[in-house]
């Protein structure tokens, strides 16, 4: 079972390969889109690389639940509804969804997709040595 540092190191390598960024840019608080320049197709690439490196299966929508954000029950007038936030918390226990409370604008969702979020997701999938 890997420890947190090993997981972070592998995630950093994956993001460098997938996004063409330098190692020093991949810090835990960096956001995938705003800070590292990820585009939609990159999310698919990142998921595939995570699966291969950690030898895990990541069903579509598990890490990045885009289907929540395209559901009109959870997003109305460009804002994530209280039910939407509840759904995101349930679907993404590894993410800091609380930061959307103050401004639930859907554009702010990019602030949730951080390097640290991916590491926490992987820790939940493979376990982590304390």
């Amino acid at each position: 079972m890997p420890d947190r540092e090993e997981i972070f190191s592998t995630v950093r390598e994956i993001l460098c390969d997938a996004l063409g960024v330098d190692e020093d840019e991949v810090v835990p608080q960096a956001t995938l889109t705003d800070d590292l320049g990820a585009e939609s197709i990159d999310f698919l690439d990142i998921v595939f690389r995570l699966e291969k490196s950690f030898e895990i299966k990541i069903p579509r929508g598990e890490l990045f639940p885009d289907n929540v954000l395209s559901d009109e029950r959870f997003v109305q007038d460009g804002k994530i509804t209280p039910d939407g936030l509840k759904e995101l918390r349930a679907r993404m226990p590894y993410a800091d969804v609380d930061k959307l409370e103050a401004n639930p604008d859907i554009k702010e969702m990019s602030q949730v997709f951080t390097v640290d979020m991916i590491c926490r997701f992987i820790e939940g999938k493979v376990g982590v040595e304390s």
Binding site: D45, F48, R49, K52, R60
Partner: peptide
């Protein structure tokens, strides 16, 4: 092929 799935491949 590094990986291949229904929705993509590297």
């Amino acid at each position: 092929i590094e990986y291949v799935k229904e929705d993509g491949a590297l």
